Computed example of a mutant assay.
Amino acid sequence: MVVNVNNWHWTDKNCLPWAKKYFERVLKEKIFKSVNDIEFKITNISQLEGDCEVNQRKGKLMSLFDMQMVLDFDVLCKENKYQGTIKIPEIAFDSEVEDYQYDITILKEKSDDSFLIREFFKQDIKEELSLIFYKFNDDLLAENAKDIQLDAEKVTSTYTSQNAQKTKAAKVFSENLNKKEIKKADSAAISAQATGFKQNTTTLKFQETFTTKANQLYQTYLSPQFIQAWSRGTFHPLTSLSSSLLSNGEKYGLFNDNIITTIISLKEGEKQSEIIMSWRLNDWVKDQESQLHLKFHESSEFGETTMEVIWSGVPLGQEDRVKERFREIYVRGVKIIFGFGMVL
């Protein structure tokens, strides 16, 4: 029984044990299937750490959680079986659906299968998992409020009753706004695919750091031999190659031509270099291409090279997808193969 007159005093409850049972129930043994005969099954929650609590004061019910999770999975792709893990570094009370990040590791992966599995995860599984994590906050409050807060009919204070109503109103407004934003982004992508017309675009700007020289990094992205290594053996020239490094106008595909790239402009220097290339995914509408501009800046003081990425022409709604793809293939892949820095 809750002893808290008019829900006035600060009351809290540690809900981490409840959260573990909750995620066991909604995630374990969950199966995802693709049209390409990929079956992805979450087999275990091997780690759930952090803080998770519900508290209230003066009628205001609040959640406060920040957790990290690791999921184990089995996956069947083209009759090949794999195991792996998904790390979710932050499941927080103030996260929106698009905020959740995933680091997927596939054990003993094969290049073609790996691409298909990761593509399936990013296109279908990621969104469904994010919606589960986003819904967690509502279920957490609904299930645990009764342990720390009196029922509304037992509250005689007008002040605390008004606070409770304000909390509910703010929650409804936030949910409706988030649904509208998701629907707007989805509608734009669906419309472009259905009509075949080019989608409106935006520009992304971000940086990555490598522990190597600028010239070495420049060659890593232009040498067919090096590209073959960091792309897991999927480099496919679509034009004849004139030298040991790609040159202007030369075109190639990666991961069964799911990514198509054409070199537009090159500028090589000892401390600073640049690569400009067109870049598209094969499921974009015809003639929809982005322009990927890589600038390499070497720091003699720290022995590092900063890669400045200016990515124009990215279709609206595809920002997270292409950025994640870039970091997984062009950054993480290069660091793992050549040891050019810490892999996150």
Rank of each mutant, 00 (worst) to 15 (best):
T202F: 04
L238Q: 02
N258S: 08
Q228K: 12
P237Q: 08
F235G: 07
W230Q: 09
H236R: 11
E270T: 14
P224E: 04
T212W: 06
I259G: 05
Y252G: 00
L217A: 05
L266K: 02
T209H: 08
S191A: 07
N215C: 08
T261G: 04
T234F: 09
F226V: 07
E250P: 03
A194C: 03
T261H: 08
W230V: 14
Y252K: 01
L266W: 07
A192I: 07
F197H: 14
S243L: 01
Q199I: 09
K271H: 13
L217F: 07
T234W: 06
T203R: 02
Y221G: 10
F255I: 05
Q225A: 10
F255W: 03
T239N: 01
T195Q: 09
K251T: 13
Y252W: 00
A229C: 12
I260W: 03
A192K: 06
S240C: 09
R232V: 09
N215H: 13
T203W: 00
S247K: 15
L254C: 06
Q228A: 11
S231D: 09
N248P: 06
N248R: 15
T195P: 07
S223M: 07
L254T: 04
E250N: 02
N256V: 05
Q272L: 09
T203Y: 00
F226P: 06
F210E: 06
A192P: 05
H236C: 12
L238F: 00
L222G: 01
S273Q: 12
G269A: 03
L241G: 07
L238R: 01
L245G: 01
E208K: 13
I190R: 12
T239K: 04
F255A: 10
E208G: 04
S247V: 15
T239Y: 05
W230S: 10
K251R: 15
S247I: 15
N258R: 14
T239V: 03
F235D: 11
N215A: 11
G249N: 12
P224D: 05
L217T: 02
K213S: 13
T234S: 15
A194P: 00
L222T: 03
